[in-house]
Design a protein around this nucleic acid. Structure first.
Lengths: 240, 240
DNA sequence: CATGTTATTTATCGAACGATAATTAACATG
DNA sequence: CATGTTAATTATCGTTCGATAAATAACATG
């Protein structure tokens, strides 16, 4: 049934003609593409598929969506795990913006403005099904990816925010933020992140739009964090 | 334990003796148990296994851990999905405490105390690999469970907290909390929940203990939420 | 102790999976 | 236009999965 008919095989396209058995789009032989493009194309579609189904998604399903045969995948990725690694790289490394940190430590703007601007841009990057769902899939599958990512968030975002906030309250000097201080900002980070999880993963109806949520959360946090930071700083001075 | 084996079938236990082919613990025939106990036992072990591996965990692996054969599972659960449903029921329905709501609306204690006490007890219930990991697995697999659970959290926890906090600030009356108000408390909830995710799922080293984190997060929140709630209430009064 | 019920096991099916080897055809080069 | 390279396909292997049917043995009852 592979149909080698030299006649009308062309328009096998993708849909409608598929028989009950599925899987084979009935197009024998396709065009020949450049390896780099194929590689990118494969990763892009893999992200799409994994975000939907998870990493248990079959290589046959992926091949079908790409309009190629399943063994072709193994010409570009030695194993499925290598494909998954490429997916991680694309999402969590290539999409990170160095400007986030720069904006946060830019003392020419008020701290509130900086933090709100950061979270608006950051959430516009990560609040997609691809980013969030794959991030969560990754965390359940193994801890490496997420630990590394969390370490980056802490080093590049939360510690700078902590120091900047401390300064804006006229507290402390250059000493590195304590774990307890950083933990405070983790709860802000987590609270905002969980908004995205409810919206995108649990598909909860979200009556409050993202910008409003961020503004209220940051306002609440910045108003309340002053006294707590002060208390922590005093305790630190006594202890140290 | 069970196994009244009249000979040496005893030590079929679990390890070492397993041949290369694996799967069969070499114990032919076991004792006969009461159906209700089996049912409970199966669910209990299924929770354990699913928390580790996810719902893709094989029924053969589960059977092996139970010391029974795989087809026996199908005498107690018509399909794997029914087993999963029983797991959900056990974790997310049976472990819910009505006292949480009662404690939160008990106006004889200060609001700060009530909220901190609630989160300490709540986290002591849900900050286990079983609860958190299965909750997250469930959310990626389908939205029903988590949507239902989130609706319960909102109705039984967050709305009461919102009203109680409003009162403690001398704001508003009996009007139901607005979506924007509730959303504020969702960020607190999410921030605390994400602490558990980092600890249990991502296995991040947590230098700040749970109680301290809760105290700081609630203090920050309660200090900061007053002005924001007030602003929202005023806007509401003008608009309404 | 004989008998009936049913909890449990043995054996097996069909589908789907990741992966490999061998074959075929698209394209670049002379 | 003949030729070599390699992108892409066909065919297939071995494993694992959820699930079912039939055989067997534990226990209750008389």
């Amino acid at each position: 049934m592979p149909n080698q008919g030299n006649t009308t095989t062309q328009m096998a396209g993708s849909s409608s003609t598929s028989l009950a058995a599925a899987e084979k789009p009935a197009s024998p032989r396709r065009t020949r593409n450049k390896p780099e493009e194929r590689h990118k194309e494969f990763v892009r579609k893999a992200i799409e598929l994994f975000a939907e189904v998870g990493f248990e998604a079959g290589t046959r399903e992926l091949a079908q969506r790409l309009g190629v045969t399943q063994p072709l995948l193994y010409r570009y990725f030695p194993s499925k795990d290598d494909l998954i690694a490429a997916v991680y790289q694309e999402i969590y490394v290539n999409r990170w913006k160095k400007e986030w940190r720069d904006g946060l430590i830019d003392e020419s703007r008020p701290i509130r403005e900086r933090i709100i601007a950061f979270y608006e841009d950051y959430t516009s990057t990560i609040f997609t099904p691809e980013w969030i769902r794959i991030y969560i899939f990754a965390g359940l599958r193994g801890v490496d990816i997420n630990r590394r990512y969390a370490a980056t968030v802490e080093a590049e975002i939360l510690r700078p925010i902590t120091l900047a906030t401390r300064h804006s309250f006229g507290l402390g000097g250059q000493e590195p933020p304590t774990a307890e201080e950083v933990e405070l900002f983790w709860t802000l980070q987590g609270g905002i992140f969980y908004y995205g999880v409810r919206e995108i993963v649990y598909q909860f109806p979200m009556p409050v739009d993202r910008a409003t949520m961020i503004r209220n959360a940051v306002d609440t946090f910045l108003t309340g964090v002053g006294p707590v930071l002060k208390r922590l700083a005093e305790r630190e001075n006594v202890a140290g």
